[in-house]
Amino acid sequence: MKLKLGVLDQSPIGRGETAATALQHTLALARAAERWGYSRFWVSEHHDSKSLAGSSPEVLLAAIGAHTSRIRIGSGGVLLPHYSPYKVAENFRVLEGLYAGRVDLGIGRAPGGMPLSSRALRKDSPKEPDEHFPQSLRELAAYIGKGERLEPTHPFAELNASPHVDTTPEVWLLGSSIYSAAVAAQMGAGFSFAHFINGEGGQGAVRDYLKHFRPGPLGDRPNVSACVFVICAETDEAAEGEARLTDLRLLYLEKGQFQQPFPTMEEANAYPYCDWDRLRITENRKRIIVGGPSKVKKELESFADSYRTNEILVTCIMSDFNKRVRSYERLADLFELLD
């Protein structure tokens, strides 16, 4: 079966760029992804960040939908523990009303930022996310029109989410653990493993998801995808040069240096790497596919086979927007997405 590719875009803010420029780049990339034949275009949610501009996927999706006409658009993802399921349902009913039949509601449970932003987003909820996540999903399913009505004794049993539209979004749970896979299987949602966050255990999580999947309030058939960092350059050597910058960027993040701009080659060459740094770089490379076209094609096909799926989401964060665009364009050509 032909491999389908989707895009996860995090609206990265390049060195010397503004957040407004990064958002315009996201719109331009969405239009290009549609032209090139990508299956989906998802946007992420991050808070209190000077390096990623996408803090509100619902708002950004409204703009992306207006700039495209065919490609599926979705959240990768809405961080449900921060929000009221009722409000999330209404946001995505609006999106379905605007762009019927091509909206994906991807749901995550990560904080999307540091503890201070999490406290600000859910200041009235003292519970930890896992304590109420399954119940929040059931409420969301009822409001969005995919699940049964809430129990008559529920305080919001009489509520209906508006607007009342004829279609509902496709629902995915996004995760980097076995827990997320288990909840997706129990609730009937699609499952997308965030391999770009956790390079270990994804294939096992997908096996468990497929084994235990049952139709539920969020869907009636299993859907699987996985998301991975990809750096596809004109040659293996050029890709490795670019990957060195990503290696340092991931090190910065692991050391809590979240506000650092994307590294330059000069910084990567001058950085005083210790043994721990080199170990982390080796480990982080499990999250990234790096190479020229032929190497990347072979590795992406093997990656998809390992996940038992014919659809992979790719995220190409590179030092320059034009290089990022060319990476996506090369992938589209390699996999003949328009055929």
Rank of each mutant, 00 (worst) to 15 (best):
K2V: 09
K4S: 15
D9K: 05
G14Y: 15
G16Q: 06
G16W: 14
G16N: 08
G16C: 11
E17R: 14
T21K: 06
L23W: 07
L23G: 07
A28M: 14
A30S: 10
A33P: 10
E34A: 08
W36C: 07
W36L: 14
Y38F: 13
W42L: 13
D48F: 13
K50E: 14
A53L: 12
G54N: 13
S55F: 14
S55L: 08
L61H: 10
T68K: 11
R70Q: 15
I73Y: 08
I73E: 04
G77N: 07
L80M: 15
Y83R: 08
V88R: 03
N91E: 12
L95E: 13
L98S: 11
G101M: 09
V103E: 09
V103Y: 10
I107L: 12
R109C: 04
P115T: 11
L116V: 14
S117Q: 07
R119I: 12
A120Y: 06
D124T: 11
E128T: 09
D130H: 10
H132V: 15
Q135V: 14
S136F: 04
Y143L: 03
G145N: 02
K146T: 15
E148R: 08
R149T: 04
E151Y: 03
P152A: 07
H154P: 12
N160H: 12
S162F: 14
P163W: 12
H164E: 14
V165L: 05
D166S: 12
L174N: 01
A181V: 05
A182T: 09
Q186T: 05
F193Y: 11
A194W: 03
A194D: 02
H195R: 02
H195T: 10
I197K: 00
G202A: 03
G202M: 00
A205V: 03
V206D: 00
Y209F: 09
L210G: 00
P215M: 01
G216D: 01
V228N: 02
V228F: 03
A233P: 08
D236M: 07
A239N: 03
G241F: 05
A243S: 09
A243D: 05
L245W: 09
T246P: 00
L248C: 11
L251W: 08
Y252I: 13
K255S: 11
G256D: 12
Q259W: 13
Q260F: 13
F262M: 11
E267H: 10
A268W: 11
I281L: 03
I281K: 03
T282L: 03
E283M: 05
I289N: 00
G291H: 01
G292R: 04
G292S: 05
P293S: 05
S294C: 00
K297R: 10
E301D: 02
F303V: 02
L313H: 05
V314P: 02
T315S: 07
T315V: 15
C316S: 14
R324E: 15
R326G: 02
E329Q: 13
R330I: 15
